[in-house]
Design a protein around this nucleic acid. Structure first.
Length: 145
DNA sequence: GCCAACGTTGGC
DNA sequence: GCCAACGTTGGC
């Protein structure tokens, strides 16, 4: 079980749109960056991730689950671009903003803080727990059973 | 809208 | 294989 962060501009693909897909989930298509793609190749079904709104909001709004391992991106010309499918699990009762992440010393090493341009990022278990708590989720809710 | 950071491209 | 030029991302 590993933890990740998926970044999306909400006017292109928002948390609400992800929620509307329900249990069927959705392809995390459109990634054309090797680092981000390699993150998705490393994902396993059942891994969890934060859903982050870039540009508008700049906050972590929910938790998703990987439901299909990496496969060629249906929107890419070249099959070297792969992506996973994810489904929305639960919203954060209180979104956690980028500003909060930047000021919390426990999150100083987060990719969100140190490498803001990476669109799919790893999150450590410790960082996961901190953000779940900041977001108002109990540890039992935030962590997988 | 600006600009810094970063990734990619292409000439040599 | 290096590096300058260029394009894109995303915070401010």
């Amino acid at each position: 079980m590993r933890y990740w962060l998926f970044k999306s501009e909400p006017d292109v693909w928002s948390w609400d749109m992800q929620v509307a897909r329900g249990a069927a989930g959705e392809e995390w298509s459109g990634v054309r960056n090797y680092q981000a793609r390699n993150m998705m190749r490393a994902m396993q079904v059942g891994d969890r991730g934060f859903f982050y709104h870039s540009n508008i909001g700049k906050e972590i709004v929910g938790i998703v689950e990987v439901i299909v391992p990496a496969h060629p991106d249906s929107t890419a010309d070249d099959p070297k671009w792969e992506c996973v499918d994810i489904r929305a699990l639960m919203p954060l009762p209180r979104p956690v903003t980028l500003a909060e992440c930047k000021t919390d010393p426990r999150l100083a090493g987060m990719a969100l803080v140190t490498n803001s341009r990476l669109s799919v990022q790893p999150v450590s278990a410790d960082e996961w727990a901190v953000i779940c708590a900041l977001g108002g989720l109990s540890p039992e809710a935030g962590f997988a059973a």
